[in-house]
C-alpha cells in the first residue's frame, strides 16, 4: 500500500515536472497579457509613470456603453464575421472538393488556390485598394469599358459598398485556408464508404449529404473556430484597405482599440475594448465547442 502510494506520488511529480515548463510558458505569453489587460481596464494610469495606477472599477466599461463609436465597431465586427464566414465556408468546401478530384495540373491548381492565403494581408489590402480606387482603379476601368456600369462606382467611399469590398477581399484571401483544412478532412474519409454507397445506388448529391458532409463535420468545426476568431480580431485588412472609413463603416473592434491605445495613448480605455473583444471571442468559442459536443 505504502509502496504503491510512493510510486504514484513519484509518477505525479514526474508528470508535474513535465507539465510545468509548458504551463509556465503558456502562462507567460497567454495568461499574463490577458490578466494585464483586465487589470489595466479597471484602472487609471499612464504607462510612462506620470500617473500611478489607481483602481476605478468599471468606469471605462461604463464609458464604452455610452460610446457610439464602440457600438458601431462592435456591430461592424459582428456583421463582417457573420457575412464573410459562411461565404468562406461554402467556397472553401467547394474548392476542397475540386482539389480532391484527380485531374491534370492538380498540383498547380492547389498552389494557385493557396496563393492568396500566402500573401501578407497588408500587401493584399494595398493591391485591392488600388483596384477599388474610384478614379483610376481596375474595377471601374473594366466596368466602364465593357459598359457594365454607367458611371464610376465609389467602392470604398460608400458605407455599404466599403463593407462589401472588405468582405470580398477577406473571402478571396481566406477561403483557401478553409479549403486546405477541409481538404485534409476529405482525404481522411475512407474510399470504401463511397464504393459501398455506389453499390447501394446513391447519387452524387446523396453521397455528399450522407457520407462527405457528416464525416467532414470535425474539420469544418476546426476551420470555423479558427476563422471566426480571426474575423473577430480583423485588424490589418481595414487598417490598410479603408482605415476604418468611410466614417466608421469598416472600423473593427481591433482597429478602434488600436486607435485608442496608440493614437490617443489611452491604455486603460483601450484595454476595456480589448477585454470586451476577448469576451465576445470566448463566448463564440464556447458556443462552437458546445455545438460540437452535442452532435457527437
Amino acid at each position: 500500500m505504502n509502496a504503491f502510494n510512493t510510486l504514484e506520488r513519484r509518477t505525479q511529480f514526474v508528470g508535474i515536472g513535465f507539465v510545468t515548463p509548458t504551463f509556465l510558458v503558456i502562462a507567460l505569453i497567454l495568461v499574463y497579457p490577458v490578466v494585464q489587460s483586465i487589470v489595466l481596464s479597471v484602472g487609471q494610469s499612464s504607462v510612462d509613470g506620470f500617473e500611478p495606477y489607481r483602481f476605478v472599477g468599471l468606469e471605462h466599461y461604463a464609458a464604452l456603453m455610452d460610446d457610439e463609436r464602440f457600438w458601431r465597431s462592435l456591430s461592424v465586427t459582428l456583421i463582417f464575421t457573420a457575412i464573410s464566414i459562411p461565404l468562406e465556408l461554402v467556397l472553401g468546401v467547394g474548392l476542397a472538393l475540386l482539389m480532391n478530384e484527380s485531374f491534370h495540373g492538380k498540383g498547380l491548381a492547389r498552389l494557385a488556390v493557396l496563393f492568396p492565403w500566402a500573401l501578407p494581408t497588408a500587401l493584399n489590402a494595398l493591391i485591392w485598394r488600388w483596384m477599388y480606387n474610384a478614379d483610376y482603379g481596375l474595377f471601374n476601368a473594366v466596368g466602364l469599358e465593357s459598359g457594365i456600369i454607367g458611371e464610376p462606382v465609389n467602392w470604398l467611399g460608400d458605407e455599404t459598398l466599403a463593407m462589401a469590398s472588405m468582405v470580398i477581399v477577406s473571402v478571396w484571401k481566406t477561403s483557401s485556408f478553409m479549403a486546405l483544412i477541409i481538404l485534409a478532412g476529405l482525404q481522411s474519409i475512407p474510399r470504401d464508404l463511397y464504393e459501398a454507397g455506389r453499390m447501394d445506388g446513391m447519387s452524387r448529391w446523396q453521397e455528399f449529404r450522407e457520407i462527405t458532409l457528416p464525416l467532414l463535420k470535425g474539420s469544418i468545426m476546426v476551420a470555423l473556430i479558427i476563422r471566426s476568431m480571426d474575423a473577430l480580431r480583423t485588424f490589418e485588412l481595414p487598417f490598410s484597405l479603408t482605415d476604418g472609413g468611410p466614417d466608421s463603416a469598416t472600423e473593427t473592434l481591433s482597429l478602434y482599440a488600436y486607435k485608442v491605445i496608440f493614437e490617443f495613448v489611452e491604455f486603460n480605455a483601450g484595454s476595456a475594448i480589448v477585454v470586451v473583444q476577448f469576451a465576445v471571442i470566448f463566448l463564440l468559442s464556447l458556443l462552437y465547442i458546445f455545438t460540437l459536443r452535442h452532435k457527437d
Binding site: 480606387n133 474610384a134 478614379d135 483610376y136 464610376p152 465609389n154 470604398l156 467611399g157 472609413g245 468611410p246
Partner: peptide, 14 residues
C-alpha cells in the same frame, strides 16, 4: 468628385 471622401494627399495628386 464623391471619391474625394476617400482621397489622401497622394490620391489627389495622382
Amino acid at each position: 468628385p464623391e471619391s474625394i471622401l476617400n482621397m489622401r494627399p497622394d490620391d489627389a495628386r495622382t
